[in-house]
Simulated assay, not measured.
Amino acid sequence: MIVRIFLPTYLYECLQHNPKLSIKEIMGLADVAYSTAARYKQNFELYKSNLDVYYIDHNFNDAQIENYRLINKQQELLNNFVLSLLKMEGFISTEELRESYYKKHPNYQNQTKRTFNRYLKNTRDFIDQSKIQHQLRIKKSINRIGFCTEVNPSFKSAD
Rank of each mutant, 00 (worst) to 15 (best):
130 S>V: 04
138 I>P: 03
133 Q>L: 14
125 D>C: 04
109 Q>N: 12
137 R>N: 12
123 T>M: 09
116 F>P: 01
109 Q>R: 04
101 Y>D: 08
100 S>A: 14
100 S>H: 11
134 H>P: 06
121 K>D: 07
135 Q>L: 12
110 N>E: 12
97 L>P: 10
129 Q>P: 00
133 Q>I: 12
97 L>W: 03
136 L>S: 14
124 R>F: 09
122 N>H: 08
103 K>W: 02
117 N>W: 02
132 I>L: 14
124 R>H: 03
106 P>H: 12
118 R>N: 13
145 I>H: 15
96 E>R: 12
115 T>G: 00
108 Y>I: 01
96 E>N: 03
127 I>F: 09
125 D>P: 00
135 Q>C: 09
115 T>W: 06
106 P>E: 03
95 E>Q: 05
127 I>S: 04
136 L>K: 14
97 L>V: 13
96 E>K: 02
145 I>Y: 15
143 N>A: 07
124 R>E: 11
119 Y>G: 02
120 L>H: 00
143 N>L: 05
128 D>F: 13
98 R>I: 11
109 Q>G: 06
111 Q>D: 00
140 K>F: 11
103 K>L: 14
135 Q>W: 09
113 K>L: 11
128 D>H: 08
136 L>C: 11
108 Y>W: 07
105 H>F: 15
137 R>K: 13
111 Q>C: 04
98 R>A: 02
110 N>A: 15
121 K>F: 09
101 Y>S: 04
99 E>D: 05
98 R>P: 04
141 S>K: 04
108 Y>E: 00
144 R>E: 11
121 K>P: 03
